[in-house]
């Protein structure tokens, strides 16, 4: 037996494809499959999901054969602060209104960089909020409330 060398990048990629393919396959199997003549809502997705699982397996097998580049640095701090930014906006835009919600969004995203100081972050967030309010609400006339019901408006 060969010593077990395992290429992380391809290994994870293969696993990810298999997991995602598995999810779609299980979901599609629960739908009406129909026949090739009159395909049900599950037919085409099931075929695709099986193909995806198959491709994932090939990638996984390749991972044990050749080793490629390393994974490299991962932006953990970035993920922790950039990804929640749109979620914050989605959760608060109706309740707080456009202005406070956008300010929060920009503020959260600002701290993704290690170079950001609190004062700079506040300044950037404030500037973005003012600019966006002028452009999107005043000039383009998007139908957003500037301040929402949570603040008593």
């Amino acid at each position: 037996m060969k010593s077990l060398s395992f290429d992380k990048v391809n290994g994870f990629a293969g696993l990810l494809f298999i997991i995602l393919g598995g999810f779609f396959a299980v979901q599609a199997y629960g739908l009406d499959l129909g026949t090739a003549f009159r395909m049900g809502p599950g037919y085409f997705p099931l075929v695709l999901a099986v193909i995806l699982i198959g491709l994932g397996l090939i990638v996984l097998i390749q991972a044990t054969q050749v080793s490629g580049e390393a994974l490299g640095a991962v932006a953990w701090r970035g993920m922790l602060l950039i990804l929640p930014a749109p979620i914050v906006f989605g959760l608060t835009v109706r309740g707080l209104g456009f202005v406070p919600s956008l300010f929060l969004t920009a503020l959260v995203a600002s701290f993704a960089s290690t170079r950001m100081t609190i004062l700079r972050a506040l300044l950037v967030a404030a500037a973005v909020t003012i600019f966006a309010s002028l452009v999107f609400i005043e000039a383009l006339g998007l139908p957003f409330r500037l301040f929402g019901p949570w603040l008593g408006y």
Binding site: P84, F136, L142
Partner: peptide, 29 residues
């Protein structure tokens, strides 16, 4: 570090303005 908070803010506004659906913003994340 000044650019990406601005980009994230504009992305959020932009995506939300298409349908006014907060779930679209969760999909962005």
């Amino acid at each position: 570090y000044v650019l990406f908070p601005i980009i994230m803010a504009f992305c959020s506004i932009g995506v939300y303005s298409v349908n006014g659906n907060p779930y679209d913003l969760y999909a962005v994340a």
